[in-house]
Design a protein around this nucleic acid. Structure first.
Lengths: 407, 407
DNA sequence: CCCATTTGGCAAGGTCTCTTACAAAGTTCC
DNA sequence: GGAACTTTGTAAGAGACCTTGCCAAATGGG
C-alpha cells in the first residue's frame, strides 16, 4: 500500500526476451516440484506454454543437471510419455536444531527427503568453538552416509534459541548458549559445512515454519505458533511467510505483562514466562500443596487422574495462556493458533478446551481455532528444512542458470 | 516459506512475448509516476530498456490516454527532450472518511492532487439510506467542482469505524453507524459514486496507511499506528503493506486486558478502551478530584500548567498506554509506533516521554521509536487516498491495456 | 555561423515463443 | 496379428519483441 519515497507506486520490472526464457524455465522447474514425475504435455497444460517451449526448457534444465528423465508412463492410450523429475542430488540442505538438551541434524536432498540424520545429547556449556567442531564432525558423518560430498551442501539452516542480531553477528537472549552473545560469534557457524551459505533463525520461528509446511498450518495464511516449554515464545506466519519483525524479535511474548506480580521482580525472565512455563507450572503446583512434583508432566498426569489440586493448576495455566493469547489475537487476528513446545504438545488435550472457553470472554470477534501441534519435537528441524528447501531451490536454479547459459 | 499443498515451492509465472510488452509498458508507467516529468532517455536509463522500446511504450500509453507530452526540456546542451507526464485526468479517486462527528470527502486525480473536498458535520443517527444519499449529493458537487464526470471516478475508498465483514456485507463493532450491521448494508455504498468500484476499510487501518504514505511511516517497513481518541484501535503495516488479519480484525486492541478491573465488568467496551480512551481520562481526572473537566483536552491543558492531579492522570494514562504497547511490541516488534487520534495528537508531547521510559522496563530488546502523528485529523482521509491511488493506478492501466491492444 | 552534444526515428538483426505439420510410439479392437 | 486411433515428440515457418547501429534534427556554445 505504501512505499518508501513518499507516495504509493505500482510495481513492474522491465525485461527483455532473454529473461523471458529464464522466467519460463523457472516456472517449469517450479511446476516439476509441485507435480513430481511429470510429462511434457502435463507441463504444457500446467504452465500454459506450448510443447516446443517445454521441450526447450527441459533440455536446458537437464543440461544444468537440475532435472532428469525417469522412464515412460505407459498404460493409457497413445504414445508413452517420457517423464521428468527433479534430480534430488541437485542440492542438499543441512538442517540443524541446536536445542537446550539436544542437537538434531538432518541432511535432506532437494526434493526434501531426509537422507541422514542424528539426534545427539548435549553435555551443555560447550564453548562456541567446541560446538562448531562437534557439529562439523556430525555433518561429515551425515554427508558420508548420504553419499554426498561436503561441498555439495547448498545451504545450512540453524535453529537456535534467542535472537540473531545481524548487525553484530551475535545471539541475544540465549542464556543456554554461552559465548554466542560475543560480536561475530555467529560467523563461526560457517565452519560447520565448509563455508556453504548458512542461515540462523530463531527456533520457535522455525517451528512455526515447520508447522506451516508439514503440520497444522498447511494452507493457512495467517497463524501463530505459541511455544510453551522451558521457555515461552511465538512464531508468526503472515501471508504464508515468516514474519520476523524489525529486530527479529517478533513473537517474543515471554515478556507479556500477564499474571500477578510486579514487572520489576521478574526482570530478565519475562512475566508470562515466569508464570506459564514448565517451571511456573511446577512452582504453582508445589505452592498449592502438591508433593513430589518435579516436572510439569507430573502435574498434567495428576490432572488426567482427576487430582483436584492439579486440575486447579491446569485451570490457572489455561487462564494465563488465554490472557496471553487474547493480546496476540487482538493484535494479529490469526486464523489459527497452534500450541507447541513441551507443554503445548503434552498437555494440549487438557488446555485447549479451557483456553478456548476463556478466550470467548476476552476476544472481540470470533475466537480463532486453537490446536495442539502434531509435529512434537520435530517441529524446529522440519522448519529448518522447509526454510532451507525453499531457499536452496532458488539458489540452485540461480546458480545453474547463471553458469550454463552458453549454448 | 510455506504453501498450500504440503511443501514449499518457488514461484514463477510462465509468459509469452505479448505479456513482455505489457510488463515493460507497466514498468514505464510506474517510472513516470516515480519521476514526474521525464524524457525518453531518462526512462531508458531508469528502466534499462532501449530508446526504441521506450518510444513504443510511450506511444501506446499516450494512445491509451494515460500519459501526455508536456513540452520540451531546454537549457542544457543538445537537442531539447520532449517530456512526458501522467495525465492526471486518467483516473479519479474518491476518498471518504465517515467519522463519528464528521464526514470528509476528497476527490483526487491520478497523480494524487486533491481537486475538491468537503468537511461536513454529521447530525448523527442517519439511516444508511440517508447517509448514502447525502454522500452521493456531496460527491456530485465535488465532481462538478473538479470538472469531471461521475462516471470518471475510478475507485471510491470509504474509511469507517468497525470491521467490514465481507461474508455478510455488513459492518461489525461500529455502534456509531446504526443500521450498517444489517447483512448487505455495505452494498448500499455502491450508490455513492455511480457503481464505480469501491473499497471499505477500517478508519484506523487507513490512518496507518496514510501515515505510511504521507506521514512518519514513510520508508518504514514495519510500524503500527495506535489510535487513541473516543475509541482505541491500531493499524498494522508489515512489509510496507497494510495487514488486516484473518477476519479483518487485526489491531483491535481495545480489548487488551490492561489496567485494573474485572474483564467481565467492561464487556463490550474493551478493557483498554475503557481506561485509556478520552472518556477514561476524564473519568479518572474526576475521580481524583479535578473539577469542571469535560474533555480530555482540559486535563492535558491543566497538566501543561503543572496541575499536580492532572499530571498524575497523564502519568497513569502513559502507564496504561505503555502496558498496551508492551504487548504490541512483544508480538510485532515494529520499527516505529505512531500515536494518533485525538489524544495521540493533542497530548503526544506529554505522553511520549513517560511512555517510552515505562516501556524500557517492559520490553525485552530495544524500544522502538514512539512518535506522535503529524497528520492530525487528515490521517484517515489521506490513507483512503493512498489506498485508492495505488489501486486506481493498477485499475486504470489494466483497463487501458485490456481495451487498447488492437493496432 | 559552425561544431559538439543530445534527442528522436528508422532499418536490420537476433531471440524468443507459437502454430502447423508430421513422424514416432503406444493402445484398442477386430 | 494387423489396422485404426490416440497421444507424444520434433521440425519448420511465422509473428512479436527488443536491441544495436546509423542518421537526421535540434539546441547551446564558441
Amino acid at each position: 500500500m505504501c512505499q518508501s519515497g513518499g507516495v504509493v507506486s505500482i510495481g513492474g520490472t522491465a525485461s527483455t526476451t532473454a529473461v523471458l526464457r529464464v522466467m519460463n524455465e523457472r516456472a517449469v522447474f517450479a511446476e516439476i516440484f509441485k507435480l513430481g514425475k511429470v510429462s511434457r504435455p502435463e507441463l504444457a497444460q500446467a504452465t500454459g506454454l506450448s510443447k516446443p517451449t517445454i521441450s526447450m526448457a527441459l533440455t536446458d534444465l537437464e543440461r544444468a543437471r537440475l532435472v532428469r528423465p525417469v522412464g515412460l508412463r505407459t498404460g493409457s492410450t497413445g504414445r508413452a510419455a517420457l517423464l521428468y523429475e527433479i534430480r534430488p542430488q541437485a542440492g542438499w540442505v543441512l538442517a540443524v536444531d541446536v536445542g537446550r538438551e539436544f542437537v538434531r541434524l538432518a541432511l535432506a536432498d532437494l526434493v526434501g527427503d531426509i537422507a541422514a540424520r542424528r539426534d545427539e545429547h548435549r553435555k551443555g556449556g560447550e564453548t562456541p568453538d567446541e560446538l562448531v567442531a562437534w557439529l562439523g564432525g556430525l555433518t561429515r558423518e551425515l554427508v558420508d552416509e548420504a553419499g554426498a560430498a561436503l561441498g555439495d551442501i547448498t545451504l545450512t539452516v540453524f535453529g537456535t534459541p534467542g535472537i540473531h542480531d545481524k548487525e553484530t553477528g551475535s545471539l541475544q537472549l540465549a542464556p543456554n548458549l554461552p559465548g554466542w552473545d560475543r560480536p561475530g560469534a555467529i560467523e563461526l557457524l560457517a565452519g560447520v559445512a565448509a563455508d556453504a551459505p548458512y542461515v540462523v533463525e530463531n527456533d520457535v520461528d522455525l517451528a512455526a515454519v515447520g508447522e506451516g509446511a508439514y503440520g497444522l498450518g498447511q494452507g493457512v495464511d495467517h497463524f501463530a505458533l505459541v511455544w510453551i516449554g522451558t521457555g515461552i515464545g511465538m512464531g508468526v506466519v503472515i501471508d504464508g511467510k515468516l514474519y520476523r519483525g524489525a529486530q527479529g524479535a517478533a513473537g517474543e511474548i515471554s515478556y507479556l505483562p500477564v499474571g500477578e506480580g510486579d514487572p520489576l521482580v521478574n526482570r530478565g525472565r519475562g512475566m508470562l514466562e515466569s508464570v506459564a512455563s514448565a517451571d511456573g507450572v511446577v512452582a504453582l503446583a508445589t505452592r498449592l500443596g502438591m508433593k513430589g512434583v518435579t516436572s510439569a508432566k507430573d502435574v498434567f498426569d495428576a490432572a488426567r487422574a482427576a487430582d483436584p489440586v492439579a486440575c486447579r493448576v491446569v485451570a490457572t495455566e489455561a487462564d494465563h495462556i488465554a490472557h496471553a493469547l487474547a493480546g496476540v489475537i487482538a493484535v494479529l487476528d490469526p486464523q489459527l493458533v497452534v500450541l507447541g513446545g513441551g507443554i503445548g504438545v503434552q498437555a494440549g488435550d487438557l488446555l485447549i478446551g479451557p483456553v478456548t472457553d476463556c478466550l470467548r470472554d476476552l476476544v472481540a470477534l470470533r475466537v480463532p481455532m486453537i490446536k495442539a501441534s502434531t509435529l512434537g519435537t520435530e517441529a524446529v528441524l522440519l522448519g529448518a528444512m522447509a526454510v532451507g528447501l525453499t531457499t536452496a531451490r532458488d539458489l540452485v536454479f540461480e546458480r545453474a542458470v547463471a553458469q550454463v547459459p552458453p549454448d
